[in-house]
Design a protein around this nucleic acid. Structure first.
Lengths: 288, 288
DNA sequence: CCCCGGTGGGTACTTTGTACGCACTGGAGC
DNA sequence: GCTCCAGTGCGTACAAAGTACCCACCGGGG
């Protein structure tokens, strides 16, 4: 994507954007012209007989939003941007979604449906929880923008996708004679860990994107030689641990290792309570 | 608040915010005069109170930002708002902070310094980790806005406060004969859990604030009778667990319970490795 | 007197979400 | 043929946010 110092619509040269943000058009009218030109191939037929190119629908809007958020992050998601990608006017979107928050909530629901829930019963509780953990892990890899939004959106609106996810995870305890409160405590610990690692992953992705946009600052921060974190005497324990455990920074391996630790803890607790975990051996598989 | 349509300095009537924003002064000269008057009024007598504002400084700006973010969330933090609370012009802030991102980064550093690090060696590793966990827990209670920002800010800039926090937590393993890579894995699991619970807490706080602002939607979502989550057959396992474990929703108790589980897991792992888990604080070395 | 560096601040231009109302289009009723 | 209507697209016009630019003021030196 190369930005030229000329209006993308009328071609008129515009100042090198030192005034504020990088600009694409010389005026808002030109921006409007740009998406109208893109809409030429859509002859605005009747709503029912759509010739291959479908009409503006909630599904198309949500899909376009997910594509943008996946590729460029939630910060790049704007109503104008979605409308431009769809070749329509900005305000047309509001015929189908109530607001941007509404759109993001719909995007979360649709994106969570992208990663299918397992349709079979788990072999045992450990298998069930591992399956649930990797399902979420996969989800956050595909749509890293979900995590920061889920945390606000989910509580305001009710999310069927999130509820289904939890329901599926809880099925791991189905065969065990476990009190609901106990199952809830295990699940809380388990889910908090997964969420915490996901937050680190999302943070890494975001930092990487920032570094790509502004390489100077990113390089400065990630340059280990100049990072005071690695100065000889500043933070000795941290530096030693980072050198030993975080080089290379393999978040997938760390996730698996910590997950095994969490599940080992649950297994030990179950054993102490004399509950048959039915899982047989399968102890501590954190070497990987 | 009532905005009188008169210049706060010269008293001349001014048109009622002809272009959107509420105006306080009829001209920049009057605003400058008002600012100067306030400066002279409190020379240096009692600089500890807010009325004894000596100068516009980075510390005052950062403090004002933290007050706003604590009380109303990061969304309410704007440069104009900070300037208004300080009784100065918006652009004056830019003489002391480079940008809003810079301000937030400084706010994070200052807020983390609010919760002091322990200055003594931990009794043993478990005590050290518990101390670190509750230190973070306290931090997120006081400044819930830190978590979403730390995750982006920390990687871009280098955060001494966060590094000191990690360094202090790592001191829990000081006395143990533990390989750095192993300590890092434990710490990763531990920190991820704490972060995950903190995310839930922050989410709750945000939802509460949203509900306060827009009570209609919040009431609708939190009304259990109408929430499909509690519909009889929709999500049976989830509903049963929620009723059992989440009524009342005591996040502090859940945090403590899950933390105990995490530490139990580490203890079991240490025992399996034949490491004396009761040894801990050795020589009294403070992180500088 | 003018000049000059430091600091405060107003203006203006950017981007964003979105309220409002007009334009168009295809079918129903005259 | 016409008008009327309902639905949909979308342009205009805000309000609020960050911030670049430059001017106003003050104190000190020619």
């Amino acid at each position: 994507m190369s930005v030229q110092p000329a209006c993308a619509s009328c071609g008129k040269s515009l100042e090198p954007a030192d005034r504020g943000r990088p600009r694409l058009y010389c005026s808002r009218a030109c921006q409007a012209k740009a998406y109208r030109a893109r809409r030429v191939e859509a002859p605005a037929g009747t709503p029912e007989d759509n010739d291959g190119a479908p009409h503006l629908t909630v599904e198309r809007i949500v899909r376009a939003g997910i594509v943008i958020a996946d590729a460029e992050g939630l910060d790049a998601l704007s109503m104008r941007r979605v409308a431009m990608d769809l070749g329509t006017g900005t305000m047309s979107l509001y015929r189908h979604v109530a607001s941007k928050d509404d759109l993001v909530a719909l995007m979360v629901e649709a994106a969570m449906a992208d990663v299918p829930l397992p349709d079979s019963a788990p072999r045992d509780w450990r298998h069930g929880l591992e399956r649930a953990a990797y399902r979420d892990w996969d989800l956050y890899h595909r749509h890293p923008w979900i995590l920061p939004r889920v945390m606000v959106t989910t509580r305001a609106y009710f999310s069927p996708a999130l509820a289904a996810d939890s329901e599926s995870a809880f099925s791991a305890f189905d065969g065990l004679d476990l009190e609901p409160a106990e199952a809830f405590r295990y699940m809380f610990m388990f889910a908090s860990y997964v969420q915490g690692v996901a937050l680190t992953y999302v943070s890494d992705m975001e930092a990487e994107r920032q570094a790509r946009i502004a390489p100077a600052q990113g390089a400065k921060a990630s340059n280990e030689a100049q990072n005071p974190l690695f100065a000889p005497g500043a933070y000795p324990r941290l530096a030693r641990a980072m050198r030993a455990g975080a080089t290379p920074w393999d978040l997938d391996a760390l996730f698996a290792s910590g997950l095994a630790g969490i599940l080992d803890g649950i297994a030990a607790d179950l054993a102490r309570r004399g509950i048959d975990s039915r899982s047989g051996g399968h102890r501590n598989e954190k070497s990987r």
